[in-house]
Nucleic acid binder design. Sequence first.
DNA 1: AAATTAAGGATATAAACTATCCGAAAATCG
DNA 2: CGATTTTCGGATAGTTTATATCCTTAATTT
Lengths: 162, 162
Amino acid sequence: MILKSQVEWALHCCAILAGLPEGRYLSTKALAELHGLPKEYLSKALQSLSQASLVETTLGPSGGYRLARAPSEINFLEIVEAVEGKALSFTCTNIRANNPCRAEGYCDSKPCAVARVMWEADEAWRDTLRRVRLSDLVGTLSEEVPAELWRSTFEWVLKRAG
Amino acid sequence: MILKSQVEWALHCCAILAGLPEGRYLSTKALAELHGLPKEYLSKALQSLSQASLVETTLGPSGGYRLARAPSEINFLEIVEAVEGKALSFTCTNIRANNPCRAEGYCDSKPCAVARVMWEADEAWRDTLRRVRLSDLVGTLSEEVPAELWRSTFEWVLKRAG
DNA sequence: AAATTAAGGATATAAACTATCCGAAAATCG
DNA sequence: CGATTTTCGGATAGTTTATATCCTTAATTT
Ligand code: FES
Ligand code: FES
């Protein structure tokens, strides 16, 4: 059970977009350079964010991406699900139905107890991600990233933001 | 992020083994038939359980698998990790290090804040699985599975258990 | 001695992930 | 207007992982 690397990319890109001044956009090219990522492939991750309505886009020179909502109104789960999909990590193929002792045409009233436990764990994972807002991340980063690096990074970003 | 189907197989097999009388073994063949699974491939999952010391084996006719510990001493996480591996679902490739604004040779003091959140979610998932014991599952199943099916299943199993 | 079993290696197929390329449509700018 | 830049979607290809089967070996029972 491994998340795709695009999850890391998307979260970091959102953190950068969260620091963008009102009304400005940042391009795929800039985001790829900043994180050292393949531009074309990162583009797919950003398209996922766009389809999930987490970011807004505009075309042409000085175009790119910006957040569609305030960072306090976006949580980790939304970003992760945008690129990773909303499918549950555990899928029950109902192997209990293959029990040869079963009466013909017998139908289960409840989902399997095994699956329920696995789904409960899945929900605990989602719940943790749902509770962390993008604004929380930005807050932590602004405390932990050295002030000079923080400043120069956004200077770098603003120079490229249309 | 999808778990392999072997997770479902392993959990159901352990639930059956938990109902086995002291000192008896159940073969791959029987477990595969009972759940309608490919015998050769299920065998790989059972080998994983064996390597994780969750089950004990014996060879020859009347050989097979039995639990290495009491069902109350085995939890879901152990079974899931045995077949799925212990790797964390999120792997940080440290893309923050690619920031062109970084000073040469700068070294981070902490793991990235993004990764810490993802790992926290991972731990919440693991914690849920850790809290559910195999004996809890058997308890739930014995309540939910119709008594007649429950009885006939273990009759079927005992007829094949060496 | 014959049959049965787990274990592990080799191999093959299918699916998912990673990555790149290209064309179309839209927006900017000179 | 025309050239450039951008997102978007489709097509494609390489790599890795998951799924599945086959076969050999060694241990055990009958
Ligand atoms: S039948 Fe799918 S988890 Fe039990
Ligand atoms: S650098 Fe890997 S999660 Fe931030």
